[in-house]
Design a protein around this nucleic acid. Structure first.
Length: 242
DNA sequence: CCGGTTGTTCAGCG
DNA sequence: GCGCTGAACAACCG
């Protein structure tokens, strides 16, 4: 479920609940559920992999982690972490992290760092990346302070699309290559969103979990790269190391 | 059918 | 206090 584009899709699917009054709250989240009863949902927001349910004086921050799921007007068999019931409708979240945070999310996030945001800033991202000169590209792409919403699939695909070896060191990347990387992180995330909505995301993967390189047909290398040690699929032949 | 994983946090250690 | 490692969480897919 959980890379940035998928969170934007959740936000869209829940739009009809905006402004509606919550009649009943259930779930095993370790928060004070009663606080939401008889309150109206002010807004839904997303920042990277965070999904936010906003109320007047607080908001819920939901992170789906690896296995989180949700349902709208239907239930899973498992106990919901959070179930919000309305007059003739409901939605629920499962196996996720939920925090209740006081205040307004507008002030607590760097919105320009969200890869899916209308206000995404390429320039700010480049500036931040330059302070990680000794880090590997595969780690920096997963840094949520720089690329909020980019996950392991987007990382793999972007590195292949830009022909950059995952273990390249930031300080060695020519400026044009760094710009291409940042631009494609944004472009591919928007593409991921379109493909995901059309249920054709997986079939459009070009390197992630592929056996052979689509371009040169050589065997795709699989390794747990960088400090993050996340599965990385890449082509030794087509992706240049800097 | 069982191992791996679209993710993050935290304890424990040197 | 730092960086690093491993555990914990927990469910679905191939």
């Amino acid at each position: 479920m959980p890379e940035g584009p998928s969170i934007v899709i959740i936000k869209e699917e829940l739009q009809s609940f905006k402004g509606k009054k919550i009649l009943q709250v259930e779930g095993n989240a370790k928060i004070e559920l009663a606080l939401m009863e008889n309150k109206k949902i002010k807004d839904f927001k997303s920042w990277g992999k965070h999904f936010l349910i906003c109320f007047d004086t607080f908001y819920l921050r939901i992170h789906l982690l690896m296995f989180g799921t949700y349902r709208i007007n239907e239930r899973k068999e498992a106990d919901p972490r959070l179930l919000l019931k309305f007059k003739n409708s409901e939605f629920s979240f499962y196996t996720c992290s939920i925090k209740l945070i006081k205040g307004n999310p507008a002030e607590s996030y760097d919105w320009d760092a969200d890869i899916m945001s209308e206000t995404w800033s390429h320039k700010k991202a480049v500036k931040k990346i330059n302070s990680f000169a000794n880090e590997q590209v595969c780690d920096v792409l997963l840094n949520q302070d720089i690329f909020a919403g980019v996950g392991n699939i987007i990382k793999n695909e972007v590195l292949f699309r830009t022909r950059i070896h995952p273990e390249s060191v930031i300080g060695n990347l020519p400026r044009t290559r760094l710009n291409a990387l940042v631009k494609d992180a944004r472009d591919y995330s928007l593409q991921f969103y379109i493909w995901k909505k059309a249920f054709v995301l997986k079939k459009n993967w070009v390197i992630y979990k592929k056996l052979n390189c689509l371009k040169c047909k050589s065997k795709v290398t699989r390794a747990y790269c960088g400090k993050t040690k996340r599965l990385t699929c890449y082509c030794e032949n087509c992706q240049k190391i800097y």
